[in-house]
Write a protein that binds this DNA or RNA. Structure first.
Lengths: 218, 218
DNA sequence: ACCACTAAATGAATGCCATTCATTTAGTGG
DNA sequence: CCACTAAATGAATGGCATTCATTTAGTGGT
């Protein structure tokens, strides 16, 4: 029996195209928002677009392609505006926090991004252009710009994972007596207060990187 | 027909146990070494141990469990010896390079490690104990030790991905004219020489972190 | 000596997944 | 008007982790 309200599409090319990359991207993001990355399957994506799974392959080559569309969309959300208006230190700081926050919600993309040729992701390339122009304007020696950005990005990606870690990740359980130094350090961090441990670590590392890199400027 | 040289095991519990965790770990590592993480399937693992796939589940609960065994084994390979014998700066430097090098070959484990409660991984916990003791002995304020280690680890994990990136990852292709600043920076890095870009970026970031954190010591 | 129980293997499903292919239909350029 | 291309369906395909019923071997208790 045909679906209740579903006016089944008949076989063959429809008069107006049903799918395009923007629609696929939006549907993927909706799906991820509702069910996480486990819920993002080609079948579920097709269902949410009221289309047969195989129809997706007229628009993307693979599931990895879908992840790439999502990645590029998200990168456009990273805030780079401070590079136009603020001193280098605070611009980097804002960019880094924003970048981490966006991808902390999307860690399954990190393995994809990390090895992604920038050619395949126009928004990502645009971000690099803005950031590297900011470094150049701040007096960075040209041959260090890319390395500094890569180092910051590595730190940001690693820190994004850290945000998703369970609160009790450092609970050493029954081994506590045999690891006194670590157990003590964990306890005294916990005693410190309510600020999120992932934020404390990110701030600590980011400020060290900013200070260290700032010294390279001419 | 029974396999050629294979003396098929008959159904039922064998006289001597065929499997244990150490054997499973070793086989998984062999498989990863030969075919990468794509080649590590429960079926392939079982085949390499001459066992039915379902037999594995008497010893591990899931594939994730297998990855955990591998992770803990690898962590034991990270070199922490310098913390016993060298000044803090060089000990951290050696540890960080070693840690990055080990996991650069095993990036698919990073999502697993990053959210892994330390209770489940004794070798990993042992590494933390040695490192935090080194920080403490170097005069680190106790409540910053964990944050500093987490920040370093985040940088290390992100940098491990970077090692695996394709050489032409920053080739902006046809968009080169619209991204002059970034394209110029990439070119002048390439002109610089033969040192691996991932190593340059890692060194740059690591030295900044060491310098920044060193200043926290009392 | 027996018996209940647990541990460790096999082999046959199960259900999900990404992807491919043959087929159908709709627009388009020459 | 005709060949071609684009975009949909629907039916495979093969691989995957995992589960379950079944069989057999050792073990601890009476």
């Amino acid at each position: 029996m045909p679906k209740t309200g579903a006016a089944r599409r008949r076989v063959g090319r429809p008069a107006a195209a049903v799918l395009d990359k923007a629609g696929i991207t939006a549907a993927a993001l909706r799906l991820i928002g509702k069910n996480g990355y486990d819920g993002l399957t080609m079948a579920a994506l097709a269902r949410s677009l009221q289309v047969a799974p195989s129809a997706l392959y007229n628009h993307v080559e693979s599931k990895r392609d879908v992840l790439l569309l999502v990645e590029d969309h998200l990168t456009a959300l990273v805030d780079v505006t401070a590079f136009a208006a603020e001193p280098w230190e605070s611009a980097v700081r804002k960019w880094a926090w924003s970048y981490r926050d966006v991808f902390a919600e999307h860690t399954p993309l990190i393995p994809v991004i990390a090895v992604l040729p920038v050619t395949d992701a126009p928004q990502t390339l645009a971000m690099y252009e803005t950031v590297s122009a900011g470094f150049r304007a701040a007096g960075f020696p040209e041959e260090r710009i890319v390395s500094a950005i890569v180092a910051l990005e590595s730190f940001i990606f690693g820190s994004a994972y850290d945000v998703t870690a369970p609160a009790d990740i450092f609970d050493s359980g029954s081994m506590a007596e045999s690891t006194p130094s670590f157990t003590g350090a964990v306890r005294s961090l916990a005693a410190l207060g309510h600020e999120k441990p992932a934020d404390v670590a990110f701030s600590l590392g980011l400020e060290a990187l900013i200070a260290g890199f700032g010294a390279l400027r001419e």
